[in-house]
Amino acid sequence: MKSKNMSPKYQFCFKKTMEHYAGQLIRYISSSLHRKNYITSVRFPEGISFLIVTKNDIWLAESLKSIVRYADEVIIVDSSDQPYLKRNIELLSDLKIKNYKHIIRDLDLPTARAIGLSECSYKWIFIWDGDHIAMDNGKFSFEKLINYVRNLDTTRYYYAIHFHLATMGYQLDEIQPERCKYAGEAWIISNSDHFKFDPRKKWDEPVIPFYYRKIFLQGYYALHLNVIRPITMHQFRDLRISWYNERKKKDISFQDYIKTHKEIRSEPWRIRKVKYDESYYGLIPTLLNKYKGLSYEQIIEEKEKEIEEYIE
């Protein structure tokens, strides 16, 4: 089929598909040319660094507890307000993490990732968030992902491994199927001087050198709980993304852009939810069992009580 006969939507998809396969071919060839003498990741000791950027994450306790057994090091760049900051300090002292660094600075996301990255000292870097919960059972258990990574040949290649996150709805028995895809923050990276986050970028997408060998895994190895929050936060987030994409065409501030969209309201908007299917996505992690069946309001009430207990 000739591209001129395609609709604009299919032309865009066709272009992106060709760019993806061309990029993968270049990566495969170039990564194969990098032999052992050029792999700087061998300078780093065996182990896993988790890089977390957090700001007022209500799920940080569960997130850290789900990965503590796998982490040789946890780097947290924290922009939280009180009382979350005090909770985070107490939480880190209570958990038996082998090694951690708690960087307290109010930074934008790309800059925070870049600073945290400079502190990672092990061979593997897991890009993580304070609202990610590792699966602890089933066919996509996080331990299987850890074993897969540790068996890769790091003497010849750099790796950038991407995996799925199961993105939850407004409570733990709902899921957003259209968002259960590769998320920008779900990366596992070979540590090297070549990999970085660009502080000049709007979002925290990693800048991966072309000779890194990319691997896309299909399993749902973690839950993404960022959507268990008021609907208006999603509305503003999606509007900010569309404003950022359109502002080159329209010289308009974000505040004025919001005024042109009257769909900001309290009822569900633009987000499709379906029943969470444990046979497909895997069992809900045991750390979250106490929240199953609770509404958004009930979850927030429970989390506020937990935070109060930490800071008393």
Rank of each mutant, 00 (worst) to 15 (best):
I67K: 03
F197W: 03
S79Y: 08
E90R: 01
R200A: 13
Q235C: 06
Y276C: 02
V42A: 10
L85S: 05
G219T: 08
S63N: 11
Q176A: 08
T167K: 06
K123E: 11
E178K: 10
K262L: 14
V42W: 02
F44M: 09
V149D: 06
I188K: 03
E308D: 06
E263W: 11
V68C: 13
F142R: 01
K15A: 04
L92H: 05
F142L: 07
I127Y: 02
I127T: 07
Q176D: 02
D277W: 00
E309F: 09
S190A: 11
K275H: 12
I67F: 05
K86T: 15
S7D: 09
F236I: 07
L25H: 04
I208E: 00
Y157I: 03
I146M: 12
H224V: 05
I299M: 06
E62S: 14
F142D: 05
H261N: 08
Q176F: 01
N147D: 15
I271C: 05
T232I: 15
R240A: 14
L288K: 10
S118K: 04
I29T: 13
Y158Q: 06
Y291I: 15
H102L: 00
K262Y: 05
W203C: 07
R35M: 12
Q11N: 13
K15E: 09
G184Q: 10
L283N: 08
D204R: 07
R229S: 11
L287I: 15
K303G: 11
W243N: 04
L60H: 07
K275D: 11
F44D: 11
L288W: 10
D238F: 09
I188R: 03
I215S: 09
W269K: 01
I125D: 01
N56Q: 07
I58L: 10
P83K: 06
I97N: 05
S192G: 04
H164W: 09
P8V: 13
Y170G: 11
G169K: 02
Y21D: 04
